[in-house]
Each structure stands twice: as C-alpha cells, then as structure tokens.
C-alpha cells in the first residue's frame, strides 16, 4: 500500500505519527504536576481508555467522507444526517421497538440520506457541495419534524435510560472500530474500488476514456460513505443517554473534514489514504483532549478548536498554494 501512496501522503503520515506522539507526551506533561511519573502514566491510561468509544463515530464518518472526497465531491450535511439517524432511533425507541430495529433504522436512515445526496447531485447535475449544503439545513429540519411527529410527547430531548441501548456505542465500540477501520484498510490494500474513486477524482476524463461509468463510481462512493456514516451515527446515538436532534452532532461536518484533510487527502480529490484519515482523526481527538487540560474554560473550547481546525486546513492549503498558483497561470 505504501508504494501506491503518493509522496505527500506518505510524508503526511510520518508527520501525523510524530504529532500524535507529541500530543500524548503533552497530555502526560499536563498530568505530571502533583503526581509521580508512574501515577501520571496510569492516569493517562484511564484517560485513553475511553478513546475508542469517543472517537468511533467521528472515525467512521471520516472514513466514509474520505471515500466521497476522493471522487472530488464532498458532503457537508453529515452532522444533520446523524441527527436524522438519531431521530429515527428515537422514533423506534419511543414505540418500544427492540434495540436491533432501532439501530438498523438509524443506520438505514443516515446511510440512505448520504447515498441520496450522491444520487441527487448526479441526477440534477449540480455540485454535491450545494446539494449537501442544502442538506445541512433540510435534514436538521427533517430530524426535528420526525421527532415531533414520531415521538409521542417529545419535549426537546429524549432520555434512553436502558443500558441495552448503549451496548454498541459504549461497550462494543472497540470492536466496531476495529472491524470498520480494518475493513476500510483492507479495501485500500486489496480492493479496486478505492483506486477507482481516486482515479475519478484525479481525472474524470481519463476514466471516461477507459470506459468507466462515472455516475456509478460517484454513487458507489456515496453508498460506501453512507454505510460508514450510518454506522457512525448508530454508535454516536448509542453512546449517549439523551437524544436531542436540534443539537446532535452540530458542526460535526467541519471537524470530520478537518480530520480527512489533515490525514493527507486532497480536498479536491484524487489523492489520499484511509490510514492517513485514521491518524488525522486521532490527532484531532488528542489535540482536543490536550486542550481540555490546557484550557479549563469550557466557553473557550469551541473557539480554540475552531482556530485549531482552521490552522490545520489553512496550513494544508498554503502547502499547495505555490504549485496551485503556477498551475493556474499555465
């Protein structure tokens, strides 16, 4: 796989590995005052033990979005899509459906919407960017309408006290994460489709010349993205006790895009790696953890996180800037 990655992606992965190590050390350094070294290390361990379940929804969504971005498209609506997933889950739950049905509904709803975005963009011939920007608002509205219609006596949020509903998102998160990430990496290692997505993003004209069906390729990427995002939504929903479609996963799309770009995927498509996305998500998560230790003001958190994400994306774009400009003038 390494030989098939382009040089910038490989370089990025090395940087990310180093960066993740650095962040771990930083968190450790924050824990050190007032403790012995072994004590701090074991506290770091307890901090990190929650990583899989906290990171799983974002990781799965990021992998899904990576595939979509590879083809040169994007999906801005994923936060709202997750809210729809949550709403469907809430509907199922409030009508007494068994956990499996609730989760299945959530997965299907979220996955279906993402795949629908891809189809709609193709069918209408307008950029995925616009379709999903519209989705950003429309699906949030849809989620709200759904919970109001489908959940009797809904008053802003729904509490799910039963432990059984938190099995996938909390207890099995590690396994979901392992299988899903493993599956994606396996696809990248041995599959043809990921390479074709990259080909689509790299040069649609070349793909057409070689007889590839561009529509099918683009829609397949959205289907793949939808499946992963649906899974992510399911884990997200089942990791928390209350469901609040108005605020659920608000702004999720940006941190996911940031993680994907950070992982070396070119925002314009054609270049990238699932492994890089994995490291990118991890980096953002660790950075956020480090922030918690560095800034104890909760009001500052969103600003600092926003600045961090902007910094990362800005840095990435500046790296391409000179080449981009020269290319433009040619």
């Amino acid at each position: 796989m390494l030989t098939r990655m382009t040089a910038p992606v490989r370089r990025r992965m090395v940087w990310l590995l180093a960066g993740n190590m650095g962040l771990l050390l930083l968190i450790l350094a924050c824990l050190l005052p007032g403790d012995t070294v072994p004590g701090a290390v074991s506290r770091l361990g307890t901090v990190l033990v929650d990583t899989p379940r906290n990171i799983a929804p974002e990781m799965l969504a990021a992998i899904g979005l990576t595939a979509i971005i590879w083809t040169g498209a994007i999906d801005l609506s994923i936060g709202s899509v997750m809210a729809v997933g949550g709403a469907v889950f809430a509907m199922g739950y409030s009508h007494g459906a068994p956990p499996l049905v609730c989760f299945g509904g959530c997965l299907l709803a979220a996955g279906g919407l993402v795949a629908g975005n891809g189809l709609l963009a193709r069918w209408l011939g307008i950029p995925a960017l616009i379709v999903t920007l519209a989705g950003l608002a429309a699906y949030r509205g849809l989620a709200l309408v759904l919970v109001n219609v489908g959940v009797p006596g809904f008053d802003g949020n729904l509490t799910v006290p039963e432990e059984i509903f938190r099995v996938p998102g909390r207890d099995w998160a590690v396994w979901f994460l392992l299988f899903a990430v493993g599956g994606a990496v396996w696809c990248e290692l041995f599959g043809r489709l990921p390479r074709l997505w990259l080909a689509h993003g790299s040069s649609p004209a070349a793909c057409r010349l070689h007889g590839l069906d561009l529509s099918r390729l683009a829609v397949s990427a959205f289907l793949f993205g939808g499946f992963y995002l649906g899974l992510g939504a399911t884990l997200y929903v089942s990791n928390q006790q209350t469901i609040d479609p108005a605020r659920m996963a608000l702004g999720f799309e940006l941190s996911v895009i940031a993680a994907v770009v950070l992982g070396g995927t070119n925002i314009f498509g054609g270049e990238g790696s699932f492994l890089g996305t994995l490291l990118g998500v991890l980096f953002l998560y660790l950075a956020r953890q480090a922030l918690i230790y560095a800034f104890d003001d909760p009001h500052a958190r969103q600003a600092v996180e926003g600045a961090l994400i902007l910094g990362v994306i800005g840095f990435d774009c500046v790296l391409h800037r000179a080449a981009h400009r020269m290319e433009e003038l040619k």
Binding site: L76, L254, I257, A300, Q302, A303, E305, I309, L310, V318
Partner: peptide
Amino acid sequence: ALVARLDVPPIVATLGTMIFYRGLCQL
C-alpha cells in the same frame, strides 16, 4: 485572507470561521 492569501476553498474556509466566530461569541 483565508480565501485569497491561503487559497482555502471558500466553502471550507467560511465553514471554519462560522464555527470559530461562534466560538468567539461564546467566549
């Protein structure tokens, strides 16, 4: 500056500042 000087695609840049400015607002 993000769009013109750093060459960040406008939609990504302003999606970022949308979150960032809202964060400042909270601050």
